[in-house]
Amino acid sequence: MPVLPPLSASSSSASVPPRAGVVAQLRAAGCVFAEEEAELILAGARTPREIAALVERRVAGLPLEQVLGWAGFHGLRIAVEPGVFVPRRRTEFLVDQAVARSPEASVLVDLCCGSGAVGAALAEALGPAELHAADIDPAAVRCARRNIVPRGGTVHEGDLFDALPGSLRGRVDILAANVPYVPTGEVGLLPPEARDHEPLVALDGGPDGLDILRRVTTMAPTWLAPGGCLLVETSEHQTPQALAAFTRAGLTAQLAVSEDLSAHVVTGTRH
Rank of each mutant, 00 (worst) to 15 (best):
V107D: 01
L175Q: 07
W70H: 02
E236V: 08
G44I: 01
V3M: 03
R195S: 10
L40V: 04
V95P: 04
T247C: 04
L126H: 05
P17D: 10
G152T: 03
P87C: 04
P240I: 07
G69V: 08
G170V: 02
R146M: 06
L126T: 00
R101Y: 01
L189D: 15
T247M: 10
H271F: 08
F246W: 10
A20V: 02
A194N: 08
L168A: 01
L160P: 00
A28Y: 10
C112Q: 02
R101N: 00
S10R: 15
R215D: 14
A225W: 07
D196F: 06
R146N: 04
H264P: 09
A194F: 04
M1G: 07
V86K: 00
L122S: 07
L62G: 03
G72N: 11
L40R: 14
V80N: 08
R195W: 13
S12N: 11
G209P: 06
G21N: 14
G61P: 04
L111C: 00
G61H: 04
P207T: 12
V265S: 08
I136S: 13
A121K: 01
D135S: 01
P103E: 04
V84E: 00
L76V: 12
F73Q: 05
P63T: 07
D96W: 00
S102E: 05
G227V: 08
A242C: 10
D196H: 12
E36A: 15
S106C: 07
G127S: 02
A256I: 01
D260P: 03
G227E: 11
G166P: 10
A60N: 07
E193Y: 12
V107T: 14
Q254S: 15
G119S: 03
L224Q: 13
R214T: 11
G75P: 11
E236Y: 06
C113F: 01
Q25L: 14
A129N: 09
S13E: 09
P2L: 10
A125G: 03
A28V: 12
V265D: 02
Y181R: 08
A244I: 05
I136W: 06
R270S: 13
P103M: 10
T252Q: 15
Y181S: 12
V55Y: 05
T252S: 15
Y181E: 08
G152A: 05
R57M: 12
L108D: 07
A14S: 12
R57S: 06
H132D: 00
A100K: 06
E157V: 04
G75E: 03
P82G: 11
R89P: 05
V266H: 04
A176S: 12
P150L: 11
R151G: 04
P240S: 06
L230V: 09
D211R: 11
A125Q: 02
L76G: 07
G69P: 13
V80I: 14
I148C: 05
S11E: 14
E236A: 14
E92T: 10
G21D: 13
Q254K: 13
I51T: 08
E236H: 13
G170I: 01
L54P: 01
V266E: 08
R46T: 12
A34L: 09
A263E: 06
T234R: 11
H74C: 10
R90Y: 03
A105T: 04
L111K: 04
A43G: 14
E236K: 12
S11V: 00
A105L: 07
R88Y: 01
V109N: 00
A20T: 12
G72H: 03
R58T: 09
S235C: 02
T217M: 06
